[in-house]
Design a protein around this nucleic acid. Structure first.
Lengths: 135, 135
DNA sequence: CTTGACCTTGTCATGATGTCAGGGTTCAGC
DNA sequence: GCTGAACCCTGACATCATGACAAGGTCAAG
């Protein structure tokens, strides 16, 4: 199977398959005489694994660890669980940061009359307010 | 006031002040004979405005619009409000995406016994599950 | 044998920021 | 007046994951 077919079958673009290979996330596949990469079903399986991990917001660094665990029959599920829980904590923090922005902005927008007049509490807050700087 | 002092007074790094200048977010300040940038209080004010906007998650593109509105005495507050509300919608969508990841991962982690055994529903889901792919 | 679809590598771009390098400037203390 | 420290200048490279593009080789169907 060439890279285009593997891309189609896995949902990972050919561009990203090559990138994952260079990044050491997947093994370099054998090549034909003319240099074409050759993939097996098993490789497509791995690519789908990676795609699902990315869809769950894992970084490539985390995916590197996850794929290692996946391949390792001696892994302990505790390691996988710890990684997932750590990721959940990261995501939760990011959500809290974003939510704080939403709260601040929503409050300000509610106070803005939103007509043709120029005065606006949103701009006023950006101009002088010193709170509300989370992140 | 040199760039270092302006950076300190505004909380924006000298590096980013130059970047904002090149990006057209702020005007290029006058220079001394030897090429040093010279800033006034008013410029620091603008930099703080930008810093607060960034802390609220506005992109530089959005900041460009916001600073234009800020400087424009003929603005209508409706324009500012619309931008803020649009940004709130973006943030809310990102929160929903992240929350969906958290939900999926939390559920999987809860099902994982997390001990020294290798079998793990988290890896199983990444391997074969076809749902849970938001983003 | 031609054509079109595919493959190869490489580069540029994104967005916002840090860091480093190599070189000029300014000022304070001696 | 000289020296060193602290500042300033520009430019380049790195981040993270991805898309887009370019120039050239390969393959298969007609």
């Amino acid at each position: 199977m060439n890279i285009g077919e593997a891309a189609h079958a896995s949902g990972v673009s050919a561009r990203m398959i090559r990138y994952y290979e260079k990044a050491g996330l997947i093994d370099a596949p054998p090549r034909t005489e003319s240099g074409y990469r050759h993939y097996r079903e098993q490789d497509v399986h791995m690519l789908r694994f990676i795609a699902r991990g990315r869809a769950l917001g894992f970084s490539m660094e985390q995916l590197r660890t996850l794929t290692d665990l996946w391949r390792n029959d001696q892994r302990s599920s505790a390691d996988v669980k710890a990684l997932a829980q750590s990721h959940v904590r990261d995501l939760t923090q990011r959500i809290a940061d974003l939510q704080a922005m939403v709260d601040t902005l929503s409050t300000l927008a509610r106070q803005c009359h939103g007509d043709e007049r120029p005065d606006c509490p949103i701009l006023d807050a950006l101009e002088s307010n010193t709170q509300s700087g989370q992140k």
